[in-house]
């Protein structure tokens, strides 16, 4: 995995959903972030996977609710 900082993560999410990253909180639920719908969620995850050279499992992907969750999912050990 290529490491990523929380600020980069926020910037990436902001880029994908076209929202100023300063308006996103690391622990706001995606239901409360404008533009973070289910399709945007998938775009965020695939962009992050490409950036960090990892693949999350389907279950991890649906469980992620916040930017903080995203960061955590990246470091969770997954059986290769």
């Amino acid at each position: 995995m290529m490491p990523i900082t929380m600020n980069e993560l926020l910037a990436l999410v902001g880029d994908v959903i076209e929202l100023d990253p300063t308006r996103i909180d690391v622990c706001s639920d995606r239901d409360d972030v404008p533009g973070w719908d289910s399709l945007a969620h998938l775009s965020i995850v695939t962009a992050l996977e490409e950036r960090c050279h990892v693949r999350l499992t389907m279950e991890q992907i649906v469980a992620v609710r916040t930017v903080e969750d995203l960061g955590r999912a990246l470091t969770e050990p997954v059986r290769p």
């Binding site: 289910s38 399709l39 998938l42 695939t46 693949r55 499992t57 389907m58 992907i61 649906v62």
Partner: peptide, 10 residues
């Protein structure tokens, strides 16, 4: 190019 996860998810 093709990812089975994405088919099932989206």
């Amino acid at each position: 190019a093709i990812d089975a996860r994405l088919q099932h998810l989206a």
